[in-house]
């Protein structure tokens, strides 16, 4: 298939508390340009930790104990995320890889307006941009995720949960990054809004061609939107494969278990309850 945009090699993360938690163990993956990679696994298996580790957002007591994440720029040239100095790291964030966080509801600063939070990105990363262009672009971004551009002057508490989520997604696309990491971006939303946002996301991906790492424990959802799926368990990747293949012929026992726990996937209604009883 197409060339890789991110290569993760033997990445391990520990929480250095007592006793030490090995949250991510020796994870290796490649993310291809423009693909949606689903990351599934039960709660606490280390999905968020892995996501944070990629862009080095982990705070003590978390520590990357080994491995690296290498970003492959479009025109060639590799950037080892771990070798960047503080200033380069700062400049690379959001520009190369942006994130939508778990609980994106609270990811917006409650006391400054949506516009100011958008413009912050441009004034920092695109200082040459004129004020008019900035404003225009902010409005366009909002509209692209289906929020009225008049909402720019709103404050987060004036938006619904779904709107806040869309605003976060619009912000994540602001600099047209090549990778977007989305950590359970839709968990707190009802199914209808969730669908709508995902459809929007898929459309935007087709339009702009960024790669997405989509984290969730909702396997059916992943099967629907991802190209490939990685199943995580206890900090390690249990199985990684093409979405359709993983669904039809799961190799790992844990994947089978996971699939079986969504009765609607295996077709046989109620089999999950009967089997576990």
């Amino acid at each position: 298939m197409s060339e890789p945009v991110l290569t993760i090699e033997n990445l391990s993360v520990d929480y250095l508390v007592d006793p030490v938690v090995h949250a991510v163990r020796d994870v290796s993956l490649t993310l291809r340009r423009g693909e949606v990679l689903g990351l599934a696994g039960e709660s606490g298996c280390g999905k968020s930790t892995l996501a944070y580790a990629i862009v080095r957002l982990l705070k003590p007591p978390a520590m990357i104990t080994s491995g690296r994440a290498v970003f492959h720029a479009r025109g060639g040239g590799d950037i080892d995320w771990g070798d960047l100095g503080p200033e380069d790291l700062r400049a690379a964030r959001w520009d190369k890889i942006s994130m939508v966080f778990q609980g994106a509801m609270n990811s917006l600063n409650p006391v400054i307006s949506i516009r100011d939070q958008f413009e912050d990105i441009f004034t920092t990363h695109r200082p040459a941009m004129s004020r008019r262009d900035r404003r225009l672009r902010c409005g366009d971004l909002l509209e692209s995720v289906g929020v009225d551009r008049g909402r720019l002057t709103s404050y987060p508490h004036e938006l619904s949960g779904g709107m806040r989520q869309r605003v976060m997604i619009a912000m994540a696309m602001a600099l047209e990054p090549q990778i977007m990491i989305m950590d359970e971006p839709t968990t707190a939303l009802d199914v209808v809004v969730q669908r709508e946002i995902l459809r929007e996301l898929t459309r935007l991906r087709d339009e702009h061609g960024f790669a997405v790492v989509f984290i969730t424990h909702d396997l059916p959802l992943l099967l629907e939107i991802s190209d490939r799926i990685a199943v995580m368990r206890d900090g390690a990747i249990a199985e990684l494969g093409d979405a359709y293949q993983l669904y039809t012929q799961p190799r790992h026992d844990y994947t089978k278990q996971l699939l079986a726990s969504f009765p609607s996937l295996t077709g046989d209604r109620g089999s999950f309850l009967r089997e576990s009883a």
Binding site: L16, V17, L58, P60, P61, A62, M63, P86, L89
Partner: peptide, 17 residues
């Protein structure tokens, strides 16, 4: 209570707030 050395904490502080 963390099992981190001063050096590790210092390095960690470089990359995050």
């Amino acid at each position: 209570g963390w099992r981190m050395s001063r050096e590790q904490i210092r390095r960690a502080k470089e990359s995050t707030l």
